[in-house]
């Protein structure tokens, strides 16, 4: 057969068309060493094979690029398209800015803590407890004291809620201290809040003003969020069996009042305000002084800013 391939190839092929077809399908090598099949029909199969491969490649390519092209489409939620006005034209742009009344500007709250002002009186602590009915043994906010001793050690302790006066705490000898300062802690209200992301029942949520809140009716008390918060802000409230946390006093700020701790601070170490309003005291302070956030490397993007932090503060 091999030798007579050229001469009677066509007739051989004609004799066993079905077999040759099967061979092609099964082996995928129609013109292999067997040579049972004629050059004409083999050539035809090769062409169609090549055609189908070309077709396949062209379709695959267009599909791949097509799916990439899909990612270029603008991704916007209906909410944001409804609320956000068109991007402001550059100065001197022909398009006039939309009138302020027609578009409701989204409110965004922020917080600034000035550690250079805090005196550790602890008034914010009892104010928060009273305002938010925080059970004993739990806290939505606390104030840490960092004491850097001359021997290089750093001591961190908590400011007592009733203040240092008559607190019976051991008195730190000022002669041994290099520097010492107070750091109030409260919810960072992260833009990318890890606590919010782990909630399995959508009980943790972000208000339209950017405040992380908890729906106590939906919370099942699993405590994932308590573990997820890198700042240790959350706890399970033993009275409600629900997760609980600092809300920047959402019930006060929505009534145009300041959070309880801000109200209670006698030295203005806590500043609350609107980030979206460039005329607010907060925006002006943030623009004028150098600030830091806690654990910036975690990428949580806190809306709580600090003035005068030292590297030891975490």
């Amino acid at each position: 057969m091999n030798t007579s391939h050229d001469s009677d190839g066509a007739s051989g092929c004609g004799n066993r068309p079905a077999t040759s077809g099967l061979n092609i399908l099964n082996q995928g090598t129609p013109c292999g060493g067997g040579g049972s099949c004629g050059g004409v029909s083999c050539g035809g199969e090769q062409r169609s094979k090549a055609d189908s491969r070309r077709q396949f490649l062209s379709r695959a390519t267009s599909m791949v690029f097509g799916s990439f092209a899909l990612t270029l489409l603008p991704m916007e939620s209906p909410e944001s398209t409804a609320e956000t006005p068109l991007p402001a034209p550059p100065n001197g742009g022909a398009i006039p800015a939309p009138p302020a009344a027609s578009v409701a500007k989204p409110v965004l709250y922020g917080f600034l803590v000035d550690t250079e002002k805090c005196i550790g009186s602890g008034k914010c602590l009892s104010a928060c407890r009273t305002e938010n009915h925080v059970p004993d043994g739990y806290s939505r906010t606390w104030v840490e004291r960092y004491v850097h001793f001359k021997d290089g050690t750093v001591q961190v302790d908590l400011v007592p809620e009733a203040g240092y006066h008559e607190s019976k705490l051991p008195i730190v000898d000022a002669a041994l201290v290099d520097k010492a300062y107070f750091v109030p802690k409260l919810c960072n209200q992260c833009v990318d809040a890890p606590c919010n992301q782990v909630c399995p029942v959508h009980a943790s949520f972000t208000s339209p003003e950017g405040v992380e809140l908890i729906d106590t009716d939906r919370c099942i008390g699993c405590g994932y969020c308590v573990q997820a918060c890198p700042y240790g802000m959350r706890y399970i409230n033993p009275e409600t069996n629900s997760a609980d946390k600092c809300t920047w006093c959402y019930h006060r700020i929505t009534k145009n009042q300041e959070p309880a701790c801000v109200e209670a601070c006698p030295v203005g170490a806590r500043v609350f305000g609107r980030l979206d309003d460039p005329e607010s005291e907060l925006s002006k302070r943030l623009g004028a002084v150098r600030t830091q956030v806690l654990k910036e490397y975690l990428g949580t993007h806190p809306k709580l800013h600090y003035v005068g932090l030292s590297g030891e503060v975490v």
Binding site: T130, E131, H202, A203, F205, D215, D217, R218, H251, A260
Partner: peptide, 18 residues
């Protein structure tokens, strides 16, 4: 958003103490 909308009004309806 992906949460119970009434929760927002419930929380903001709490009365300030201080």
């Amino acid at each position: 958003g992906p949460y119970r909308g009434d929760a927002l009004t419930e929380i903001s309806a709490q009365q300030p103490v201080l």
